[in-house]
Amino acid sequence: MENMGHMVEELLHELSVLPLFSEHIGTFTLTNYTFFLLIALALTIVFFLVSTRRLSLVPKGLGNVVEAGVSFVRDGLCVDILGSENGRKYFPFIGTIFFFVLFNNLLGLIPGSLPGTGTIGVTVTWGIVVFLVYNGIGIKKNGPLTYIKSFVPSGTPLLLMPLIFLLEIVSHFLRPITLGIRLYANMYAGHIMLGIFTILVTISLEHLSPGSAVTGVLAFVMRVIMHGFEVFVAVLQAYIFSILTTVYINGALHASEH
């Protein structure tokens, strides 16, 4: 059993951010997560370039997949929440977010690879990008003063205004952080869980005995099931990230109505 502590430590060490090469270009270095991030980037670009060649009026093959994905994000998500005109205008941003997060999450499910989104630097960065973008949209559409005034709902008495304003500001600044942490925690914890089930299987195979064999088989079955669950979580988290982005953009666009 002392083994287990070591193995868990090892697992955690493997999953933490590690530099790949020993040279640094200034403070810059490729880490294990960034490596897979770049692989996912290349994969997304290749996927889209290849499938846009296969588009036809009657959908078939890869073109069908890409069309289904784009239709899902645009018609089911953007247009649904933002309305037809705004939905089409902001679709490229939301689409990029969805597909990049999706490919990163899914890439991490290949055994031996890591999800690029499994580290807090990446996800919180994207969260901050979303934050800047949606505030930018709000300010561009409504003018800076109206937008900031919209934080306070119009009917509040004068005494409560500073308090509510503060609360709103805090909640707004929490948004990128929660976006980032939600995605990061889901991916990181998923990998840890898969790793722990693997450790269980390994340990139960080391000192073989009936009890441990049963545990081993159970752990293996659980691991397979959890792997499938992780696929679902990958897609779901990409979807949630995108839909929250859309909802924030919608709130910013309609700020003048508060």
């Binding site: 403070t27 810059f28 960034t34 630097g121 990446v122 960065t125």
Partner: peptide
């Protein structure tokens, strides 16, 4: 968050 990661994430996005 680590700086290298932030830069790579931003650039790739």
């Amino acid at each position: 968050p680590k700086v290298p990661e932030v830069l790579v994430a931003l650039a790739s996005f």
